[in-house]
Design a protein around this nucleic acid. Structure first.
Lengths: 255, 255
DNA sequence: CGGATGATTCGGTGCTCACCGAAATGTTAT
DNA sequence: ATAACATTTCGGTGAGCACCGAATCATCCG
């Protein structure tokens, strides 16, 4: 079914993106859950996803076939295992944007452990390759207050911000000679405000992990802030004390 | 079923974005077609959409009910008419991103008129509030070559670019004092390359319309380049002659 | 006040597809 | 080799939903 570039070019006047086909991939509860799980940026096996989504392995196989052939997931087969992950950063970004637009559905909490997990997830978690949750939003807003980011319809990195990054030892990403690394925003579904993504967001995340400011749970998307991280975030950005602990949730915007 | 902010806050630890529900809205051929049509940024009546999508009016009503209550469309009822449009720029942006990720489906061409329409659409069209199609891509690339935009993972406006905009009489958008207007890129499904969107893209589009460089078809998303426009695009940006006529399609990237 | 027009409600029909279990395939471990 | 394991294939079932037409409602026009 693959169309090579020449065919595509010759027929390009008669092609349309099949939005419905792509959306249909995500229109199923189970498949959507799988994609959300993969938003942690990691690689999962088919079995793990089956258990996570509470469906039979055979059902999972069918879903993965669809998602892979639809181009949303990349797969790698090793031995009797099937490893899948999101196809790429643009896929992750689009998914997060979609999630920001989506309506909210209450999810049942059955135990204290689940409640704690939930709280931690809201406080700080990975969003593919950067920091999301209340911590991510607090970071973005602290950087804005300090003039490192400017709010101009979206977010942009200021000259001061670029300087701050270099001072911190975060290398300028991208081939461009300019002092403007790429900034994207990502609508955070937990706090319903924007946090930092794009190349800068990813660099910041890597930096924080390298310096052990934060640690990622091996099995979930949850991030924990270390003692060193608390110090660093306070000193570098003046993050409020409350933002550094899991009970923190920013106030709702605009009353 | 609406949940006010207090309820939402109190329950916020137990909510998840219902990605599947949102995707289900777009997973239908007809609804997807409706959304793509509305990507022209305009306002359509229910009847117009029914005819456009070739379904019964009653069917259209059902679709519009779903899309509106799902938050994708905004509606306004005037007399016996029902006017709908996309809910906002973020909705439009996410839709275009999705379309860029979507697989391509050949569309039957039945007449010469259809073929011409198709060609015009590929050459230049609106993408909500900015210019897309081969012309949009050519603009973005010409600006990049002239150092007005820098390609750094995505696209960013350079200082020279900001200066160029002001010189052209395009006011700096946004409240920020900085010389960095907001730049977004939008993956163009016709040419499969990025064109300029965001505040700068929108300003550029408005400017071009104001100066009568381009004219929008009242019934479709098609843009026509005027004689004045050809001169302006050539003089301001050195756009190649071929890019200014509907037969032009840029070469595929990276052979 | 009618008659035309745009939109909606409703019942019924047909198709698609998510799901499971049981059996099969292929890989690793003993 | 044999056993344990991860994944896949296949047939069958049930639910959801896109669609239409006919009737109805509401608005605009003469």
């Amino acid at each position: 079914m693959y169309m090579n570039r020449w065919d595509a070019d010759q027929e390009s006047l008669a092609e349309t993106p099949d939005l419905a086909a792509l959306a249909a991939l995500l229109a199923d509860r189970t498949r959507a859950a799988i994609c959300m799980a993969l938003l942690d940026g990691g690689t999962w096996t088919a079995g793990e996803l089956a258990e996570y989504a509470s469906v039979a392995p055979s059902t999972t196989t069918e879903h993965l076939n669809l998602l892979v052939s639809g181009g949303l997931l990349a797969e790698e087969r090793r031995g009797r295992r099937r490893y899948v992950r999101l196809a790429g950063p643009d896929t992750a970004e689009t998914l997060e944007n979609l999630a920001g637009l989506a309506p909210y559905r209450p999810v049942p909490i059955r135990s204290l452990a689940e409640a704690n997990q939930r709280r931690a997830l809201h406080h700080a978690r990975t969003c593919y390759d950067h920091i999301a949750g209340a911590l991510g939003v607090a970071l973005a807003e602290a950087m804005t207050e300090r003039g490192l980011l400017a709010r101009d319809y979206g977010l942009v990195l200021t000259a001061a911000g670029a300087q701050w990054l270099t001072a911190l030892g975060i290398p300028d990403t991208g081939p461009s000679a300019a002092h403007r690394a790429h900034v994207r925003t990502c609508f955070d579904w937990t706090v319903r405000r924007q946090h930092l993504s794009g190349a800068v967001g990813a660099a910041l995340y890597r930096h924080a992990v390298d310096r052990a400011w934060i640690v990622k749970s091996p099995t979930t998307r949850i991030l924990g802030v270390t003692a060193a991280g608390r110090t660093a975030f306070r000193d570098c950005l003046g993050l409020p004390e409350e933002a550094l602990f899991p009970s923190f949730t920013p106030a709702a915007p605009r009353g």
